[in-house]
């Protein structure tokens, strides 16, 4: 069976199931983001992002998504949110910043959406 032709997960709108297919697609990107647990790796990325991405063998789609700090594009390129959070952390972006970016809201609008979930 060709694994790329087999869909284990029926879609949920606005949600990417990070399964084996995505894990294979995003491996280099996620491995780079995992390295950002270490302060020296974060400094190395900031000093030379292109060289650092090259070291981990990111593809063009992944590199451009990193340059743009575009979370939806990073996810589409195989990024896993737990590792991407470490990438976002380099730029001091928290989960409301990236939530706002992904939903096209301001941070204040996004926080209000969260608050309203309690009503």
């Amino acid at each position: 069976m060709d694994i790329t032709e087999f869909d284990h997960h029926s879609p949920i709108p606005g949600t990417t199931i990070f399964d084996g297919k995505m894990a294979m697609k995003g491996y280099a990107l996620n491995k780079m983001c995992y390295s950002f647990n270490a302060a020296e790796a974060r400094a190395a990325y900031l000093a030379d992002p292109e060289g650092y991405m090259e070291t981990f063998g990111l593809n063009d789609e992944q590199k451009q998504a990193c340059r743009d700090k575009n979370v939806l594009a990073l996810i589409a390129a195989g990024g896993n949110i737990y590792y991407l959070a470490k990438f976002a952390g380099i730029f001091r972006l928290d989960v409301q910043d990236i939530g706002a970016q992904q939903t096209g809201m301001t941070k204040e609008e996004f926080k209000e959406k969260l608050r309203k979930a309690g009503d």
């Binding site: 709108p13 606005g14 979370v71 990236i98 939530g99 939903t103 996004f110």
Partner: peptide
């Protein structure tokens, strides 16, 4: 949910 258009 942290990721995707359904974030939040």
């Amino acid at each position: 949910q942290l990721d995707g258009e359904r974030a939040g």
